[in-house]
């Protein structure tokens, strides 16, 4: 290589290196500015909530707030559980067995996000044609397992991540 070309290569390397190192810096600067909009520590700390279910009688339900959304916790009677299990999958717009929506050995307890999967309204309990919930906004009907049976809602009401801490307490999230 001639001395001229050699010099040119060194100069190009210098400039390229400067640009690259500079770009890394700019990227590192931009990240905190974006990440600060993500949930902060106090919000993340409330990401889970523990609920005392000892006072919920058979056939009754309660609603609690979790991450700003309503959670329906229903304690089903044996008849209601039977009814939920008996529904044929072909009758469901969003086929899902009742067993998949409850915890093993705890099928009394239905825990779901009380938000209609159509456009986000809160369905009313003990209403509708399927002995479950009814959403007044656009007429979706949910059954005793929280599955959509009729109306514009595309999916069954969501089951959140939860677990039984003990027989009287569930931890959601």
């Amino acid at each position: 290589m001639s001395k001229q070309e050699d010099k040119k290569d060194r100069r190009d390397f210098l400039f390229t290196a400067s640009y690259t190192v500079g770009a890394v810096g700019i990227g590192a600067t931009i990240w905190p500015l974006i990440h600060q909009m993500n949930p902060d520590e106090s919000v993340k700390a409330l990401a889970t909530t523990e609920v005392d279910i000892s006072q919920v009688e058979s056939g009754k339900s309660i609603t609690v707030l979790w991450r700003g959304k309503p959670i329906f916790i229903k304690r089903r009677t044996p008849d209601e559980i039977q009814e939920a299990k008996a529904v044929a999958l072909k009758d469901l717009p969003d086929p899902q067995k009742d067993e998949e929506r409850v915890k093993e050995g705890k099928d009394e307890w239905l825990v779901m996000v009380g938000v209609c999967t159509h456009l986000g309204c809160v369905p009313l309990k003990d209403k509708g044609d399927f002995n479950g919930w009814f959403c007044p906004c656009h007429g979706s009907h949910y059954d005793i397992s929280g599955r959509v049976r009729k109306g514009p809602a595309p999916k069954n009401m969501e089951i959140p991540k939860y677990e039984f801490v003990d027989s009287n307490t569930i931890k959601i999230g």
């Binding site: 100069r11 210098l14 400039f15 290196a17 400067s18 190192v21 500079g22 890394v24 810096g25 590192a28």
Partner: peptide, 16 residues
Amino acid sequence: IYLILLATLVYFSMKR
């Protein structure tokens, strides 16, 4: 350390 590194590269670019 990053700023010193970048400043060095920029310094020599400037001289060039």
